[in-house]
C-alpha cells in the first residue's frame, strides 16, 4: 500500500503547481468575493455571527468535498482508463486492494493539506480562535472529503470515461456545493428540500466544520455527523476493495 502511495507522491512532485490552483486558489477566491465582498452587503448577522464567519467554515467543507471529487473521481477514472496507471500497477505484485489503499492515502494527504492551507487563511481573517480548533476543523474537513472520495473512487474505477463524471459533477456536485448550507443556512430552504439536503453527506460536513469553528458544537449532533461520515468512508473502502479487484484482475 505504501509503495502505491509512493508512486502518487513521486508524481505529485511534478504536478502540484497545477493542482494547487483548483484545490486552494479556487475556494480562496470564493471566500474573498462572496464571504468578504458580498458578505459586506449582508445586513445584520446570520445565525448570530457575521456572514464571513458563517460562510468560511461551510466553504471549507464544500471545498474539501469538491477536491474529493477531483481526486477520487476524475483522477481515479483517468488512472484506470486514459493513463492506465492502475492496470500497469496491477501487473506487478501489488494487489488491487493496495493500489486502492495507496491512492486513498494520497487523497487523504491532499485533502488535509488543502484544508490546512484554507484554515491558515481563515486564521489570517481572524476566523480561528486557537490551534486546537484549527486542528479539529482540518480533521473534520478531511473526513468530509474522504466520505465522498472513498465511495466515489469505488465507483469511478468502473467508469468508462471522463464525460460520465462531468455529468455527475454538474448535476450532482454543483447543487450539493451550493445548497448544503454552504452559502446560506438550510433553514432558509423549503421543508422537503431541506430534508433531502440534510441526508446528504456534505451538509453533515458543513455543520460539523461550522459548529467546531464557531465553538457551538454540541456532543450529540457532532457524534452523529462523525458517525455518518466515518460510516461512508468505511462503506467506500469496503466497496472499493471489491470494485478495484473486479476491474483490475479480470
Amino acid at each position: 500500500m505504501f509503495r502505491a502511495l509512493h508512486y502518487w507522491l513521486y508524481r505529485y512532485r511534478r504536478t502540484w503547481r497545477g493542482t494547487i490552483v483548483i484545490s486552494v486558489a479556487n475556494p480562496l477566491l470564493f471566500l474573498l468575493a462572496i464571504g468578504a465582498g458580498l458578505g459586506a452587503l449582508v445586513r445584520g448577522s446570520v445565525d448570530g455571527v457575521s456572514y464571513l464567519e458563517f460562510f468560511a467554515p461551510g466553504l471549507l467543507a464544500a471545498a474539501a468535498f469538491q477536491n474529493a471529487f477531483v481526486d477520487g473521481g476524475f483522477a481515479v477514472t483517468s488512472a484506470s482508463r486514459r493513463e492506465r496507471i492502475y492496470p500497469t500497477a496491477a501487473a506487478t505484485p501489488l494487489e488491487p486492494g493496495e493500489i486502492f489503499g495507496g491512492h486513498l492515502l494520497f487523497i487523504t494527504l491532499r485533502l488535509a493539506l488543502s484544508a490546512a492551507a484554507f484554515v491558515l487563511v481563515m486564521a489570517l481573517f481572524g476566523l480561528v480562535s486557537g490551534p486546537g480548533v484549527a486542528v479539529a476543523v482540518v480533521g473534520a474537513a478531511t473526513l468530509t472529503g474522504l466520505a465522498l472520495a472513498a465511495p466515489l473512487a469505488a465507483w469511478a474505477v468502473t467508469v468508462r470515461d471522463i464525460p460520465q463524471l462531468n455529468t455527475v459533477f454538474r448535476f450532482g456536485m454543483m447543487p450539493l456545493y451550493l445548497f448544503s448550507g454552504t452559502f446560506f443556512s438550510v433553514a432558509q430552504l423549503p421543508g422537503p428540500i431541506r430534508a433531502v439536503v440534510q441526508v446528504m453527506p456534505l451538509w453533515h460536513g458543513v455543520d460539523l466544520c461550522r459548529t467546531l469553528a464557531l465553538g457551538t458544537a454540541a456532543l450529540g449532533p457532532s457524534l452523529l455527523h462523525l458517525g455518518y461520515l466515518a460510516g461512508l468512508v468505511v462503506a467506500g473502502v469496503l466497496a472499493g476493495r471489491v470494485t478495484f479487484r473486479r476491474c483490475l484482475h479480470t
Partner: peptide
C-alpha cells in the same frame, strides 16, 4: 443559491 439564497440576506 446566490440570487435567492444570499439575496434574502442582502439588504
Amino acid at each position: 443559491a446566490i440570487g435567492v439564497g444570499i439575496g434574502g440576506l442582502v439588504g
